[in-house]
Design a protein around this nucleic acid. Structure first.
Length: 508
RNA sequence: GUGGGAGUAGCUCAGCUGGUAGAGCGUCGGUCUGUGGCACCGAAUGUCGCGGGUUCAAUCCCCGUCUCCCACCCCA
């Protein structure tokens, strides 16, 4: 290892986390764990059970549930074609004909997706096959023809076999799929489920927004659409935030009507918007056609005055929706949940209806929504299940963590309970045994792998934030009395092995 | 996808109108072979994000590109 020789060695290129993804590291992960454990605890008290659906699903599931026209599905999903594993991966020359026919048939039956790429591959393969077929009578195959055979392999191997799958951009669709797949409609209603984990959307990263991000969510499926269910779900999220001491949590609620009344309102809104079209910016002008409700959400200062004069949906709900909305508000009041009515609150996903809500928090920049949710009574049926009521929410965990950090609610990093400073071969064995026993008793223990002088060991103990140093040298081993030093004040005392455990239990 | 800002040691950053790099903190070792926090001494780590151009010479100027940050769009 001389310095001179190695200096020109080429270093391998450094890898880095893919754009929009990141490593969560200690001590921050302690906060993540606290948040997730609090979710388990709080949701458990509301009778929710955890579901862990897969991280990818058939692309069609999200297209159907979230809406094929939404940005999420049309341009933000990570979609790829899976391998089709029922084809013989490496046919011999003799099997080539059968293999090609099989590929062609699967393509026609759309078991292999008809992507533009596959179309070209099949056509090329067909052209080559027409040329090869007459040659097959010649045995053995002349060398000059082998290259052409290889070209056929190349085209078939390059085909995007298998079905289209996507990394989940959200989890409600997966939960509904699982509800149907496992026949949960025959469970006592309603079925209350929660989940947590990574989601994926290919968006431009910014504060509180990542391409791999984390959500904690819950869904209530089946049973009735009783307003009390809406209220309880909201109460649960607020309880969760309260438990975490989230600062400045602001709950906004609204009702966006149902299949009956919403379309009528949307038309009314569109008509009103067209009257003031010239005064709106280009984004809002476009939305008059694509999604008039979203105009209400505009952040443009210049549009605020115009938007304020637009008709609100609350005045145009059908009787059932109006009754439901009023009852939800009443239920929230009975539970002591403080809310703000926000008639401009709309949801981006297609499946929402009636109750919608959003919770914002401090310290998040422009991405200040930390939770969004609502009712989606038609969704399970849309996915091929029985008619089923549904309501749920999703919390942006990254944003929640960010807000907790901004307001100083992150827990202080926890150091070791005990650092074992040992010297000498006899003490080594004792130290190993001590570490085992202390860890068994639940203490966080650092056992240095190699012998260190006591001065150095205590320095390490200090740096690692240890509460105590257990000093084990020749004296301790021969006396059978172990020295325990309290790092904070420098005091130390001697204990027998059992007394030590007892003493630590009391003081930690 | 659009716009703005930024990339120099593990971290925070310096580097005067271009002359091939420094500080503080951190890490490791020593002063200190049974006692830490302090102090002092010493060491390691950089293709100055990457590629190209201008120049005798580029961390610095120009172009491209990547990544990060912020905002728009959209959303949790």
């Amino acid at each position: 290892m001389s310095e001179g020789t190695a200096k020109k060695e080429e270093k391998p290129r450094k890898f880095q986390a893919i754009r929009g993804t990141r490593d969560l590291l200690p001590p921050e992960t302690a906060l993540w764990n606290r948040v997730e454990q609090t979710a388990h605890a709080v949701f458990g008290t509301f009778g929710f059970g955890e579901i862990r659906p897969p991280i990818f699903e058939p692309t069609g599931l999200f297209a159907r549930a979230v809406g094929g026209e939404t940005d999420i599905v049309s341009k933000e999903m990570y979609t790829f074609v899976d391998r089709y594993d029922r084809l013989d991966p490496s046919p011999t020359v003799g099997q080539l004909g059968d293999y090609f026919e099989k590929v062609k048939r699967l393509y026609e039956e759309e078991k292999i997706p008809k992507t533009p790429f596959n179309k070209i591959a099949v056509e090329e393969a067909q052209a080559i096959w027409s040329k090869i077929e007459p040659w097959l009578e010649d045995r053995p195959t002349p060398d000059a023809q082998i290259a052409t055979f290889d070209r056929l392999f190349v085209f078939m191997d390059a085909m995007q076999l298998g079905s289209e799958i996507s990394l989940r951009p959200e989890a409600t669709a997966s939960v509904c799929r699982a509800y149907i797949e496992h026949g949960m409609q025959s469970l006592p209603a309603p079925v209350k489920l929660y989940y947590m984990g990574p989601m994926f959307r290919r968006e431009r990263p910014q504060k509180g927004r990542y391409r791999q991000f984390y959500q904690i969510g819950a869904e209530v499926l089946g049973g009735s659409d009783a307003p009390a269910i809406d209220a309880e779900v909201i109460e649960m999220v607020m309880t969760f935030f309260d438990r975490l001491e989230l600062q400045g949590a602001q709950l906004d609620i609204n009702s966006i009507g149902c299949r009956e009344c919403r379309p009528k309102y949307v038309e009314l809104l569109r008509a009103e918007l067209l009257k003031v079209k010239d005064k709106l910016g280009p984004d809002s002008q476009r939305r008059i056609e694509t999604n008039p409700l979203r105009v209400l959400d505009s952040k443009l200062e210049s549009e605020q005055g115009i938007i304020a004069k637009l008709p609100g949906i609350a005045d145009h709900l059908c009787e059932d929706c109006a009754t439901h909305y009023a009852a939800v508000k009443h239920q929230l009041e009975m539970r002591g949940v403080i809310y703000r009515e926000n008639w401009r609150l709309v949801r981006g996903l297609d499946y929402y209806m009636r109750t919608t809500f959003e919770i914002t928090a401090q310290g998040l920049g422009s991405q200040n929504a930390v939770c969004g949710g609502g009712r989606y009574d038609g969704l399970v049926e849309l996915l091929g299940g029985p008619p089923t009521k549904g309501i749920g929410f999703a919390i942006g965990e990254d944003r929640l963590i960010l807000s907790l950090q901004e307001s100083g609610k992150a827990p202080a990093p926890k150091g070791r309970d005990v650092y074992i400073a040992w010297m000498g071969d006899k003490a080594r064995a004792t130290a190993i045994r001590a570490a085992k026993d202390l860890r068994k008793a639940g203490f966080s223990v650092e056992l240095p792998p190699v012998e260190q002088k006591f001065g150095k060991a205590l320095g390490q103990a200090d740096k690692l934030g240890a509460r105590f140093a257990l000093i084990l040298g020749d004296n301790e081993v021969s006396e059978g009395l172990w020295t325990l030093k309290t790092l904070a004040d420098g005091s130390q005392a001697k204990f027998t092995e059992p007394d030590l455990l007892e003493h630590l239990r009391k003081s930690l």
